[in-house]
Simulated scan of single mutants.
Amino acid sequence: MQEALDDLERNDILSREQAALLRQIYARELFSVHWELRILLYGGILVLTAGLGLLVAKHFASIGDLTLLAAIALGCTACFAYCLRHGGGFSPERLATPDAAYDYVLLLGCLLLGTLQSYLELRYQLLAQSWNWWLLVSALTYLLCAHYFDNRLVLSLALSTLGAWLGVKTSLPGAWPWDGALRDNAIFFGGLVVAAGAMQTRLGWKRHFLPVHLHLGINVLLAALVAGVGSRGADLAYLAGLLLAGSGSAFYALRERSFAFLLYAVLYGYLGITIFVFNRGHWSSEGVIFYFLASAASLLMALVALHRRFRSAE
């Protein structure tokens, strides 16, 4: 590598400064902390929002409703004003991020908006028994912000909130979280999210949003199908659906060289098959131990081999 850089510098393909920078990178004297900083910023936004929620819950009586509402609304307005001033605008293509704080200020504004809605409902019961519609309003607002400001963090928040609204709306008090209608609605929601991402990509609208749709949609879909395998009566149908969806995820992984989607297919498939096998047979304790030892070892070796193939293909 050093000889190649020397040749490039000698032939005036690289300047002295460029060659020196590349030598530092190759010697690992310089390294990127981009993702570490992004994780810290994201965690800081979540901690700040959680702290605000605790503050509201603990001191709303002494501070006063109007003061708290005004403070939250002011912070939310300031965040959106900052984002409107520095960026935004509908575009089917990826928009350049104006600065490092832009994405996180937008995320903070959306979370403050959710806090404001929650506080209004908590104190004034504006929707009473229909409070779950606040989730739908929040989800649609976040979805609009994600597309207008071209932000994948907010898109994740929007899709998660939409799924939460669907789950709250259809669940029954005291029901098992993955039981009955809720499980089937999770399958519908996961398929809908994946289909929406694929449709956007085909139409040429926000193609870079596709991974967000796929990661969330496939995980929800496969998890719901695995839960269905554990149900009595329709376990074979759910297993067939799980294998079909897992095959689609694996095919996409191989086509796009994305190991994560292959990992989803293998792990959820293994879990579903394991549940099906144990539900359909009578196993001794020795058989259970042998099954998990043999299957887990085989699964681990397969994943390591597949990961090496993906790395070598890159």
Rank of each mutant, 00 (worst) to 15 (best):
E36G: 14
L243N: 13
R207G: 15
F276H: 14
L293R: 09
L54D: 13
I187H: 05
P98L: 00
R152E: 15
I72M: 04
L30N: 08
E36F: 00
Y119T: 02
G217Y: 05
R280H: 14
G217F: 07
L192R: 04
A250G: 09
L267W: 08
A70K: 03
S118P: 05
L225M: 06
F276Q: 11
S231D: 14
G64P: 04
L172N: 15
R309A: 11
G114N: 13
G87V: 02
W35I: 03
A224F: 05
F188G: 14
L203Y: 12
C76D: 11
C83H: 07
R255A: 12
L54T: 15
A237S: 11
D179C: 01
L216I: 15
M301L: 12
F251S: 10
C76E: 15
G51R: 03
F189G: 04
G44Y: 04
Y124M: 08
H307E: 14
A297V: 13
I63H: 03
L243D: 11
L5T: 15
S171E: 11
I275C: 05
S171L: 02
L157S: 11
L236R: 07
G180P: 02
E93P: 00
Q200N: 14
T49V: 13
V277W: 01
P211Q: 04
S130P: 08
L140Y: 09
P173V: 04
T115C: 04
S284P: 15
F80C: 06
S160V: 09
S249G: 09
L192Q: 04
L263P: 02
Y252T: 10
A240L: 14
Y119D: 03
G180V: 11
A70N: 12
F209H: 14
D179T: 06
W131I: 01
G287A: 06
Y148H: 10
S247Y: 09
L52D: 04
V105G: 02
G180Q: 02
A175H: 01
G109T: 06
V288S: 12
F261E: 06
F276M: 06
L182T: 15
L126E: 14
S171K: 06
G272R: 02
F31N: 09
G241T: 08
R255K: 10
L159Q: 07
G109Q: 05
A78I: 10
F292Y: 10
G64Y: 10
A73V: 04
L225A: 09
G190I: 00
A57E: 08
R10K: 13
S231L: 00
Y148I: 06
R85K: 13
Y26K: 03
A61L: 01
A146S: 15
R23P: 13
L225T: 09
L116I: 03
L242E: 09
H34W: 01
N185H: 12
E256D: 11
Q200I: 00
H34M: 00
V220E: 07
L210M: 04
L263S: 07
